[in-house]
Design a protein around this nucleic acid. Sequence first.
DNA 1: GTTAGCACTCGAAAGTGTAGAGTGCTAACA
DNA 2: TGTTAGCACTCTACACTTTCGAGTGCTAAC
Lengths: 342, 342
Amino acid sequence: MKLSERKEQILASIVEYYIATGEPVGSKTLLEHSPLSVSSATVRNEMAELSALGFIEQPHTSSGRVPSQLGYRYYVDNLMNSYELPVQEKRLIESRILSASGEPQQILEQAGQVLSEITNCAVVSTTPCDEHAVIRRVELVPIGTRTAMMIMLSSSGILKSKVCKLDCELSMDIIEMFYNVVSKNFIGKSAEEVSVAMIQTLALSLGSKSLSVSPLLITLSDLAQMTEQTQLLLQGQSNLLNYTDYGNAYEIMEFLRRSDPLTSFFSSKKNENSPRILIGKENQFRELQDSSVIFSNYSVSGKESGTLGLIGPTRIDYARLIPSLKYLTEIVGSIMSDTLEE
Amino acid sequence: MKLSERKEQILASIVEYYIATGEPVGSKTLLEHSPLSVSSATVRNEMAELSALGFIEQPHTSSGRVPSQLGYRYYVDNLMNSYELPVQEKRLIESRILSASGEPQQILEQAGQVLSEITNCAVVSTTPCDEHAVIRRVELVPIGTRTAMMIMLSSSGILKSKVCKLDCELSMDIIEMFYNVVSKNFIGKSAEEVSVAMIQTLALSLGSKSLSVSPLLITLSDLAQMTEQTQLLLQGQSNLLNYTDYGNAYEIMEFLRRSDPLTSFFSSKKNENSPRILIGKENQFRELQDSSVIFSNYSVSGKESGTLGLIGPTRIDYARLIPSLKYLTEIVGSIMSDTLEE
DNA sequence: GTTAGCACTCGAAAGTGTAGAGTGCTAACA
DNA sequence: TGTTAGCACTCTACACTTTCGAGTGCTAAC
């Protein structure tokens, strides 16, 4: 549906004023903050129609208007002027992210930190997950006589490590055998392929030696699983406390902490266009019905790999946040790709 | 100061009832929840004296009494019966922590998770920091032709890694030279000793080859710094939102996020007896004047290494939390020590 | 030293009144 | 026909008052 130009102007004013102040907008107030040169009565008439069409709502009979979910949607789709990040700020952001250690986790952590600061939203991000990633390298670093740290590196740059305890001394023999087994059976395989069954078969084939190697193989399969699993990072939750009249902050924070639903939600959206904006009930989660979720995927080496998302009240500043999020995903992707470039 | 037995009994009742309900306790209510067989008037007389002595306070003239900071202190020092964790729960906790990867960070993360669940407090913990720890191992894992991941392992079990980008190809030559330099100059040294000056001197001594190795050395010094730095982990903040009438939760959460003050606070207390209990203004932080902080150190291989801490309102259940915290520090210490055992 | 009784205090909750922002409708106007 | 001024009406926020009850301190008697 296409609104008249004046209605659009009024709707945009309502959305922007409400986003800025959190106060419902009356016809008079609106005129004070808009270039419109008509009387308040005219505005009232237009507002009544916008109400009837469902674009704006009244918290109570005699209060100003507030954008409805539909109103926000129309605004985002048709009226919003995206604000472009100034180059200076881009530089600043870039340098902060480059100060991270270069590992995906750390890059995301820095990016999330920056994003939560500039957006005042909660930030969620998923670690890169590439179904076609393969195990590139496995290292075994002895720590004690019976303990070693195993490190797994995947082709998508994920590094995981785990301490492994053995039942017997970790001799050169065992280490050598382990590396042999690894290079023959694991390197170049995807993490998914490393199943418990596969480990068992392998252990059997080693015969008597399997006893000493099997703790290592179990650790290896744990690592494969950890590599395969997408992790959800959560930052800036405390930002949500700043919004008064924004539902039960505790409930939202608890929901975010339970990470699983969001992780699978993001994975399912991985190949769709981004950024995606879900306003209010457009998202499926009961706990986020009063929230907006904006998310965008970053690509590592040309492949969609993970997601950065923002969560805040529906009255967040879409025009400012969307470009910020977009820039952050671009830069996260490019820095991660850099690391992996051959 | 020693109170009479009856006063002690009354104080204990007040503290316990108030901790349980959050409601100020009146003389009548107190009798309903106490085995005391005197009249409410007698209790009132005793309460008046306890007020005069500063052990309890009245939020307003005609309301029940609430323990003062001094009252809590007396309770914790003299009246509290520590509750012992049932073996079953201990088992459960242990198994959850053992499921972590064995790295200090992960162990702490699990422990913090458990602790925040059973205490309903915010949990802070510091990674182990051992001034006498030395660099045990440095590994260089090539990722691309010009990128490599460097991994540093300290004798206290800390594992840090960073991606390093080189200006030229990472040849076998360079790798070999790097390992040489490392084993000659870094292994067995403490992380503190790795200074910028030292790196520079070293680079100079390598002459023409220094150009290709120096990015690696810089990364090495970054890693040394990361190893040396104590990190603060923060969990269960959202628990704090559950306490009504508990100051500005946002302010507290922001304070916890700024981690530096707490990190240095904990480091300064590392060699003191634990657990330590700071009630209300007994701690030095303006933001935590209405909170209690309970912390306890864990030792790895016999040396005090890091801290687990709980932060909540002054009316937390000391009798229950202190044993839980104590048990968690014991188990964290023992699991970490296990990993390092030679 | 303990207790019953009583007058007193004060906060929480519920009720009342008012100011002000905002509305919808109508009739007049360009 | 679209715009506007005017007006009666609605409803919230806020301040103020009243009431209720939990709790107190004090006193006199046991």
